[in-house]
C-alpha cells in the first residue's frame, strides 16, 4: 500500500509517495536523498539516525514515515545556512576531533543539540542529583544524555570536549 505525505527537510518541502512500511529513516535516505541521517542498526539502538524534528531529537528508524506527515525535520546537513558557516556544535566537533570515521557524527551532533535544549528546559536525567532543582551541565549529565549515540570509533572523550566547547563559545548552543 502506498501513501502520500509531505515532509519539510532542511527547509525544503517534499511530497512523496511511500510504501506504508517505509520507516522515516528510509524515506529520508532512499526517497529524499538525505545523507546525514545514517542507518547504524535500524532498531533504535545506536542513535546514528538522529535528526531534530519540531525542535526535539528523534531516532528516525523507530517510526514509520506515514506517521510524520507534515513534519519539519532538520538533519545535520541543515543545521547551518551555507553563508553563516557551520553550527557551533559542528565547528567544535571538527576542532576537538570528536569523530574518526564520521558515521555516527551527524547523529551525535543533532543529539547533542537536542540534549542541550532538554537541559535548558529543565528535564532531569538518570544522573540528576536533585530533582527539585533544574539540572546543571555537568560532565556526567552530558555523558549520560549522549549515551544513546554509540560511537564504535570510541571518540567519546572528544565528543564531551566538543559539547563543552560549543556551550562555552556559543550562546546559541540549542537550535
Amino acid at each position: 500500500m502506498e501513501s502520500r505525505l509531505a515532509l519539510t527537510v532542511d527547509g525544503e518541502e517534499h511530497t512523496i509517495e511511500v510504501d506504508t512500511r517505509t520507516t522515516l529513516l528510509d524515506a529520508l535516505r532512499d526517497r529524499i536523498g538525505a545523507t546525514a541521517p545514517k542507518k547504524g542498526c535500524d532498531h533504535g539502538q545506536c542513535g546514528s539516525c538522529t535528526v531534530i524534528e519540531d525542535g526535539r531529537r528523534v531516532t528516525t528508524c523507530l517510526s514509520l514515515a506515514v506517521a510524520h506527515d507534515g513534519a519539519s525535520i532538520v538533519t545535520a546537513s541543515g543545521l547551518s545556512d551555507g553563508d553563516l558557516g557551520l553550527h557551533p556544535m559542528q565547528q567544535a566537533f571538527i576542532e576537538q576531533d570528536a569523530f574518526q570515521c564520521g558515521y555516527c557524527t551527524p547523529g551525535q551532533i543533532c543529539s547533542a543539540i537536542g540534549m542541550l535544549a532538554e537541559i535548558a528546559d529543565g528535564s532531569p536525567s538518570f544522573v540528576t542529583e536533585d530533582l527539585a532543582d533544574p539540572p546543571t551541565l555537568t560532565d556526567a549529565e552530558i555523558r549520560e544524555r549522549l549515551s544513546g549515540n554509540l560511537c564504535r570509533c570510541g571518540a567519546y572523550v572528544n565528543i564531551l570536549a566538543a559539547v563543552r566547547q560549543a556551550t562555552q563559545h556559543s550562546d546559541k548552543g540549542a537550535a
Binding site: T35, S77, E95
Partner: peptide
C-alpha cells in the same frame, strides 16, 4: 591539523557506500 574531510563529515554530506547517487 583538522581533518580535511571534517566539514563533509559533520554536515553529513560525505558519501558512504549506500549514499552515492
Amino acid at each position: 591539523t583538522a581533518r580535511v574531510d571534517g566539514i563533509a563529515k559533520v554536515t553529513g554530506t560525505a558519501q558512504y557506500a549506500y549514499e552515492h547517487p
